[in-house]
Computed example of a mutant assay.
Amino acid sequence: MTSPRTLRLATAQLPVSGDARINGHNVRAAMRHAAAGGARLIHFPEGVLSGYAKNPIQDWAEVDWAVVRGELDAVTALARDLGLWVALGSAHSLTPPRWPHNSVYVISDGGEIVTRYDKRRCSYTEVTRFYTPGHAPTVFEVDGWRFGCVICVEINFPLLFIEYDRLGVDAVLLSTYPVDSIFLVKARAYAAIHNVWISVSSVTETDHLFRSGVIDPRGEIVAEVPGAHGVVIHTLDRAAPELDIALTKARPWRASVETDPRYDTRKLDDPRSTDRTCR
């Protein structure tokens, strides 16, 4: 059993086609690679199993949901065989005529879907043509480590990251099909502000923008997928000396400020404070 101090996390960058059979094959190959490298959890991009709407999916009529579910079953079976946790991006079909959720399935090392994150802040195009938004955060635990999930354009909504900070996550899994390179800068900022690890799992098709990988609680990129199609494995370590300030000082101090009476000076009776025109 992995020590609670550390956890081996795999981050994947894969191509996304409109054929769930091809996607499922690539996902399972990445899972085997991750397990061989000692990973406990592998994180995948947005829409990697079903195919992502707009590119390559233009209409949900193109998708054979029975095939998607069959590939998902094959992924859960392999997760059980490998003893590997999986965070898997895919559309999740709803009752017709509702559009699907844009989701991340969380699959345990026993091969069970233990929860699912449904993208809450879908883009304008998504919400008008393709997806039904979700409405709740998702937190799950692996070996005493707490993970939260967000998807793509949600990088532009700070309240989602604030919420996960307050829920006490150690790391955020960010599954994406990005449209610009500033995306990674935003992810680094959230990691440093909230002192959490962020795994950014993107697709091969956007490799020209940035490379998938892991950002540490200082906001530093500490691992990158070695090529446009591949997996990187990184050990998250709560006791790493370079993370001491971020994890044992900065994060708890920031969490304490709202309730620390020393910062509440609304009743300060000092004319030199209340007069904002004085010299």
Rank of each mutant, 00 (worst) to 15 (best):
A34Y: 03
Y263Q: 13
A12W: 04
R80P: 00
R5M: 07
S17R: 10
A223N: 09
S108G: 01
N195Y: 01
R5K: 13
D180G: 00
A189K: 13
A189D: 05
G219M: 01
P178A: 10
P56K: 12
I233A: 06
P97I: 15
T259M: 13
R238M: 04
A246D: 02
P56E: 13
V231G: 02
A171V: 06
T274Q: 13
A223V: 09
A250V: 09
D73F: 08
E141Q: 15
V185P: 00
K119C: 08
P15A: 14
S201F: 04
R120N: 00
F157S: 09
V169P: 02
S93N: 11
G37F: 06
L167G: 00
T2R: 15
V86A: 08
A20N: 10
V214L: 15
W253V: 10
Y263M: 15
V86T: 08
R32M: 11
I162K: 12
Y164H: 12
Y117L: 12
D64I: 08
A53L: 10
D270K: 08
S181G: 00
V200W: 04
P4H: 05
D180I: 05
S273W: 15
D143P: 01
V127H: 00
P15N: 11
P226A: 14
Y164V: 09
A61G: 02
I113R: 07
F183M: 12
I155K: 08
A87W: 08
N195Q: 12
E154Q: 09
D269N: 13
L9W: 10
D73T: 14
I113W: 04
A240R: 07
G230E: 07
L243I: 03
E242G: 01
V16T: 12
V106H: 00
H135F: 13
Y190G: 03
I107F: 07
R254F: 12
R188S: 02
P137G: 08
S256Y: 03
G18D: 11
P137V: 06
F140N: 04
R98A: 13
P96F: 11
V104E: 09
S17G: 08
S175G: 07
F183Q: 13
T274P: 02
R5S: 06
V75Q: 09
T128R: 15
G47T: 03
F130Q: 05
W197L: 10
A66K: 03
